Simulated assay, not measured.
Amino acid sequence: MRIGIRIDGDRALVGPSPGPVDQTAGPAEPFTTALIEARGALLAWSVPPGRFPDAVVHAPDQAAEWLADVYGPGVAAAVADVDRRTEASAEPAAIVLGDSAELTGPVRTLALLGWAARWWPAGGSVPALDTGLLAAEIALAAHRVDHLLDDEEATERALAEAADAPSALERVPARFAGEAEALSAALSDLAEDHGVVLRPVAAARDSWALAAGGSVSAASGVEIAHGSAPVSWADVAPQSVAADAEATWSLRHVGGQAVLTVEVAPVPGADPADLRARFGPEERGIDVRLEVDGTVLRGSTEVPASVALLPIEERVLWVRDVRMTSVPGPAESPEARQAALAYAAGRRTDPEASLAERTAGALR
Results as ranks from 00 to 15, higher is better:
residue 196 V to Y: 12
residue 317 L to W: 03
residue 320 R to M: 13
residue 145 V to A: 09
residue 201 V to P: 02
residue 237 A to Q: 12
residue 351 P to M: 05
residue 139 A to T: 10
residue 153 E to F: 10
residue 322 V to M: 13
residue 142 A to E: 11
residue 7 I to L: 03
residue 264 V to P: 07
residue 269 G to W: 06
residue 349 T to Q: 15
residue 197 V to I: 08
residue 145 V to I: 10
residue 263 E to G: 05
residue 276 R to G: 13
residue 220 S to T: 01
residue 105 G to Y: 14
residue 72 G to T: 11
residue 281 P to E: 09
residue 72 G to R: 10
residue 56 V to L: 06
residue 202 A to N: 03
residue 120 W to L: 02
residue 194 H to D: 11
residue 285 G to F: 05
residue 265 A to L: 07
residue 165 A to C: 07
residue 239 Q to V: 00
residue 85 R to G: 01
residue 271 D to Y: 04
residue 246 E to I: 14
residue 361 G to T: 01
residue 171 R to M: 10
residue 321 D to T: 10
residue 35 L to V: 10
residue 289 R to P: 05
residue 224 I to Q: 08
residue 255 G to S: 11
residue 58 H to P: 05
residue 147 H to D: 14
residue 176 F to V: 13
residue 192 E to L: 14
residue 278 R to S: 05
residue 257 Q to C: 07
residue 116 A to T: 10
residue 87 E to I: 09
residue 43 L to N: 01
residue 200 P to H: 00
residue 38 A to P: 07
residue 194 H to I: 11
residue 50 G to V: 07
residue 111 A to D: 12
residue 122 A to Y: 02
residue 336 A to E: 01
residue 53 P to N: 04
residue 159 L to F: 03
residue 250 S to L: 13
residue 281 P to H: 04
residue 208 W to Y: 10
residue 36 I to Q: 13
residue 353 A to S: 15
residue 330 P to C: 06
residue 125 S to T: 15
residue 20 P to I: 08
residue 179 E to G: 13
residue 90 A to L: 14
residue 112 L to A: 09
residue 77 A to Q: 03
residue 58 H to D: 11
residue 213 G to I: 00
residue 102 E to N: 06
residue 338 Q to R: 02
residue 265 A to N: 05
residue 102 E to A: 12
residue 242 A to M: 09
residue 281 P to M: 06
residue 285 G to C: 07
residue 121 P to D: 02
residue 35 L to Q: 04
residue 64 A to I: 03
residue 114 G to D: 00
residue 10 D to Y: 04
residue 247 A to R: 11
